[in-house]
């Protein structure tokens, strides 16, 4: 009974699928943008690979770029001032750094919204009070929070680095409908080709304390390295612990294999 019924059900599905095959066009809708989008360029960082470490000087430079450039529009909601001790700052430096920020608070006497000096336990304050304010100030485009950006985009750090360095004039053969409209900027690394963010970096925009030359490429690398850290502050520790675990498990696995061979030594199987 099962088999004849199954046969009929199977034929039903197969007929529906055969009709589907013959009614679905074999050609995709042409997507002109696709041929202009570029694959992100690879960015090599100290935190890459199986032997990662943090390049603290680079992370500090990157944080400077974030603070002086990106933070005008982008929040960094998941990072607290106390976290930047990981970047090689002392407790005192963190306190001073935090004090340089005004964080939202309330007036203790009136209860009105107010601001106060930042404490190490505070988080980087957002540039806009809410999404509506952020959109209103940015031509209806919402600048995303950057805390997780290198994990939240296809292509990760390579994408962020390529986007920051990828602003250029539209190619001559770019069709009219793909050309940037008002308030949009051409960037072949952006999936839509045109994004609301204007070219954020220009040579010499920040002055590095360590004397590194602040080229666009250098700043893009530094801020991307910093954003890799903000996305996963435990990355280096994770890989280091990983090696210890793998080492232990290798010995364990060899021992269990020997034990297995021993126990089975007198049994043919």
């Amino acid at each position: 009974m099962v088999r004849p019924l199954g046969f009929l059900v199977g034929l039903g599905f197969i007929t529906a699928l055969i009709f589907a095959i013959f009614t679905t066009p074999l050609k995709n809708e042409p997507n002109a943008a696709y041929s202009f989008v570029k694959h992100p360029r690879h960015l090599e960082l100290a935190s890459d690979g199986l032997m990662p470490h943090w390049d603290l000087a680079q992370l500090q430079r990157g944080m400077q770029v974030y603070k002086e450039v990106c933070s005008a529009c982008h929040s960094l909601n998941l990072v607290a001032f106390r976290n930047i001790q990981d970047l090689g700052y002392t407790e005192g430096q963190v306190k001073t750094f935090a004090k340089g920020f005004q964080v939202p608070s309330i007036n203790p006497d009136t209860g009105e919204p107010a601001t106060r000096d930042g404490l190490p336990s505070d988080y980087f304050p957002a540039p806009y009070a809410n999404d509506v304010a952020a959109r209103a100030a940015n031509n209806n485009a919402l600048p995303p929070d950057l805390s997780l950006i290198t994990k939240a985009r296809e292509g990760g750090k390579d994408y962020v680095y390529s986007l920051l360095t990828g602003y250029q004039n539209p190619p001559a053969n770019l069709p009219k409908e793909l050309r940037p409209g008002t308030g949009l900027h051409y960037n072949p690394y952006f999936p839509n080709l045109n994004l609301a963010m204007a070219k954020p970096l220009s040579d010499g925009q920040v002055t590095y304390a360590d004397g590194t030359k602040a080229t666009v490429d250098q700043m893009a690398k530094d801020v991307t390295a910093f954003l890799v850290w903000t996305a996963e502050p435990k990355l280096v520790k994770r890989v280091q612990v990983g090696w210890a675990v793998i080492g232990f498990l290798l010995i364990f696995t060899v021992l269990t294999y020997l034990s297995y061979r021993n126990i089975w030594a007198d049994k043919k199987h």
Partner: peptide
């Protein structure tokens, strides 16, 4: 014993 070895490989 054989499953112990299997668990080792699985955990790796």
């Amino acid at each position: 014993a054989k499953d112990g070895f299997g668990v080792g490989v699985f955990l790796l």
